[in-house]
Nucleic acid binder design. Structure first.
Length: 328
DNA sequence: AACAGTACCAACCGCTCTCAC
DNA sequence: GGTGAGAGCGGTTGGTACTGT
């Protein structure tokens, strides 16, 4: 049994708003406000519209100080950085761009910006465009019936692709080519890839290994990067206010559904959680994991590998500039 | 000029979240 | 703590404008 509809679907008008409807809605809200009840509002002013439709029209179009189109390069840069960091949290991204609506940004991203970043890889002659074997690698990641693509969302894959692109896959010091920066179990070889074949292999290994680390329970100290602190209202991201450290605890099944972990990290963590294990076994894994890490590195504190990803990408403005194709 | 393909964007849909009761 | 209504959000759709053939 589904929930009751918010309005009488048969008696509401759909489709584009007329100037008269706009005027009615605008005049009423400017004089009386919404009254905290969008559902009742259309009846009050004699509009045959759903309350949700009224809300959307007001927020996305009629509200004062709304900007449409003409995104600046600075806005592009912020949108890209935030998308890579937090994914399709359009409302949060919109909060950082005064006058922009989430819908506007979402449309702009889906129709233009995404193509600008990801779409140009095949025809690009750019020095950082991907080599042929890397194209294959991405197809493996984004791809089809086998492998990691089955479990990573399109958004996460997109962000990984952007991330890899911004990291500069040719660089032997990039995260993907430097196992020393990887989570302990993945960085076993400690080899830095210096040729495309090895780099490709490392990229694939990174993704697939994330799948196989099922059941591990790892502390991921997660500092908010300086970039995020500067550009994002952290309080809106749902991080704990007292500490930035996030303890990923598999024993709490609700944890991953809270906003404490957002986006890609959560998805990777989900991959690790795919395999069902008892709490005891998980705890044992965790203890072993931490002990091994401590033994190898002298401290559990430096197990801050996720920061190695976030920090490096968010600070690579020059790479972002490179991909966007214009000077910042 | 006519048509097809593409790009863009407003609006809708359905789900989750929040909060009052 | 459980429930339900409204608000908010992100994904998707459909219509229109634009561009190329």
């Amino acid at each position: 049994m589904g929930r009751a509809p918010c309005c009488d679907k048969a008696n509401v008008k759909k489709g584009p708003w007329s100037p008269e409807e706009d005027a009615k809605l605008k005049a009423y809200i400017e004089e009386h406000g919404t009254g905290g009840n969008w559902i009742a509002l259309p009846q009050k002013i004699g509009l045959k519209r759903c309350g949700k439709s009224c809300r959307l029209r007001w927020l996305n179009y009629l509200r004062p100080n709304i900007k449409h189109g003409g995104f600046s390069e600075e806005e592009d840069r912020i949108i890209c950085s935030l998308y890579i960091s937090i994914g399709s949290r359009w409302s949060i991204i919109a909060a950082q761009l005064p006058g922009r609506t989430d819908n506007d940004i979402k449309n702009y991203w889906n129709t233009r910006l995404k193509k600008k970043l990801l779409g140009k890889r095949r025809e690009s002659t750019h020095s950082r465009s991907l080599p042929v074997n890397q194209e294959r690698s991405e197809e493996g990641v984004t791809g089809n019936n086998e492998g990691p693509s089955q479990t990573l969302s399109a958004s996460a894959l997109e962000r990984m692709q952007l991330h890899m692109k911004l990291q500069g896959l040719y660089s032997p010091f990039s995260f993907y080519n430097n196992p020393a920066l990887w989570p302990p179990k993945l960085g076993a070889t400690n080899e830095i890839a210096t040729n495309p074949t090895q780099q490709l292999s490392n990229c694939n290994a990174f993704v697939s290994a994330n799948q196989t680390m099922a059941g591990n329970k790892v502390e991921m100290p997660r500092d908010i990067s300086p970039y995020m602190q500067e550009h994002v209202d952290i309080s809106k991201l749902g991080f704990p206010t007292s500490t930035n450290n996030v303890s990923i605890d598999n024993s709490n099944s609700n944890f991953l559904s809270t906003p404490n972990i957002i986006g890609l990290e959560a998805e990777l963590q989900d991959l690790w959680d795919v395999e069902e294990e008892s709490l005891e076994a998980q705890e044992e894994h965790r203890t072993t994991e931490l002990d091994c890490f401590e033994e190898a590195n002298g401290s559990k504190e430096s197990m801050n590998w996720w920061d190695n990803i976030n920090g490096s990408a968010l600070h690579s403005d020059s790479m972002l500039q490179d991909v966007l194709g214009y000077d910042l």
